[in-house]
């Protein structure tokens, strides 16, 4: 019987060694260690042995059984690992294949610029005011100190609908309307929007374009406040090390009136093609609200003062992104629009 046991063991170990996969090994397990297997049979057959041999034999069978089980488990672990390995190999991907595209669109570059400006001024306590694109002559011109026959009206040849109605030539009528509505109370607004002028479309002119203006009215608003505000704007939009300078200019609705230049963001002021070798780039017009404008809207120009500024998002986008032709903004070429996808913050 002992010899029989040894033979069984040899056989089992051979079969374990020979099994090539988990299934074959499981078959070996069932064949040798299962309830109907020969080892179990041997145990069952112990009843026929003399009583004094039984414990010795029992121990021997158990030793063989444990030995076989141990070898089988080890083989099992190995085969399982091999199986996983094989599966992984089979499932491996060419990770360089392109991913499933997530197609998203993006803001128009002008909206991108406008929202950036809006958000900056919102953080400084401004609200966004909007108004109609078709305006009354009164709000577009007269309320802004541009009476009929004023020479400055030539500066912005307009599209009239009737004698008194026109496509607004700037977003300033929103200021006039806001002032009228606020009835003498302080104001802090940003007005973005579309405007229209009688220009033939070319690389630098567009009969439709956008403007964004700011207006602050309060007690003792000073020109230094305007300068400080514009400096914050210039640094935020064009970089922390931007400097600004003001130059005298003329707008009928402000007095004094200035134009603001920023130090060139490309060359830093040493002169390049962006700043036309001057080191400075003209960005916007601004000034202290003309007393006539305040008075016409019912503000006491002796008690309250204000500043206003206005700029063209097209110009800012052209400078910032190097766009050379204003018509790109209105052609809606996807090859152009899709270049404004990524974040910049």
């Amino acid at each position: 019987m002992e010899a029989q046991l040894q033979q069984l063991k040899e056989e089992a170990l051979q079969k374990i060694e020979a099994s090539q996969n988990v299934k074959e090994l499981n078959d070996v397990r069932v064949a040798y260690l299962g309830k109907k297997g020969p080892i179990t049979d041997l145990l069952k057959g112990m009843g026929k042995l003399p009583a004094e041999e039984r414990p010795k034999m029992g121990a021997l069978v158990n030793v063989v059984r444990e030995e076989v089980t141990e070898v089988l488990e080890a083989r099992m672990t190995l085969l399982q690992e091999q199986a996983i390995q094989a599966q992984l190999e089979k499932e491996s991907l060419d990770v360089t294949l392109p991913g499933r595209p997530v197609k998203t669109g993006n803001h128009h570059p002008l909206t991108r610029v406008v929202e950036e400006i809006e958000d900056l001024f919102i953080s400084m306590g401004y609200e966004i005011a909007e108004g109609p694109e078709v305006e009354k002559d009164y709000y577009n011109f007269e309320a802004l100190n541009l009476p009929k026959g004023h020479p400055a009206r030539d500066m912005q040849d307009s599209f009239y609908i009737s004698e008194d109605i026109l496509l607004r030539t700037h977003t300033s009528p929103v200021q006039a309307r806001t002032m009228e509505a606020k009835e003498g109370k302080p104001i802090k607004i940003i007005c973005p929007g579309k405007v229209y002028r009688r220009d033939n479309d070319d690389a630098t002119h567009s009969h439709q374009f956008t403007q964004i203006e700011g207006l602050v009215i309060g007690e003792n608003i000073r020109m230094s406040d305007l300068k400080g505000t514009l400096s914050v704007f210039a640094k935020k939009m064009f970089g922390e090390d931007r400097e600004i300078r003001l130059r005298p200019s003329f707008f009928p609705f402000t007095e004094p009136s200035v134009e603001m230049d920023i130090s060139c963001f490309k060359c830093g002021g040493s002169g390049c093609n962006v700043c036309k070798k001057t080191g400075w780039i003209e960005i916007l017009g601004a000034g202290m609200v003309h007393p006539n404008v305040l008075e016409m809207a019912g503000y006491d120009s002796k008690k309250l003062s204000g500043f206003a500024f206005g700029m063209g998002p097209e110009r800012i986008a052209m400078l910032k992104y190097g766009v050379e032709d204003i018509r790109h903004f209105y052609t809606n070429d996807v090859r152009f629009l899709s270049q404004f996808h990524r974040t910049e913050v």
Binding site: S123, D225, G228
Partner: peptide, 23 residues
């Protein structure tokens, strides 16, 4: 101002009742 020089104007921010801005 223009004869004195706009560069001489200091930079300040409006001093007023603080109000949150927003959309």
């Amino acid at each position: 101002a223009r004869m004195y020089g706009y560069d001489e104007i200091p930079m300040t921010l409006p001093v007023e009742e603080s109000k949150p801005g927003g959309l």
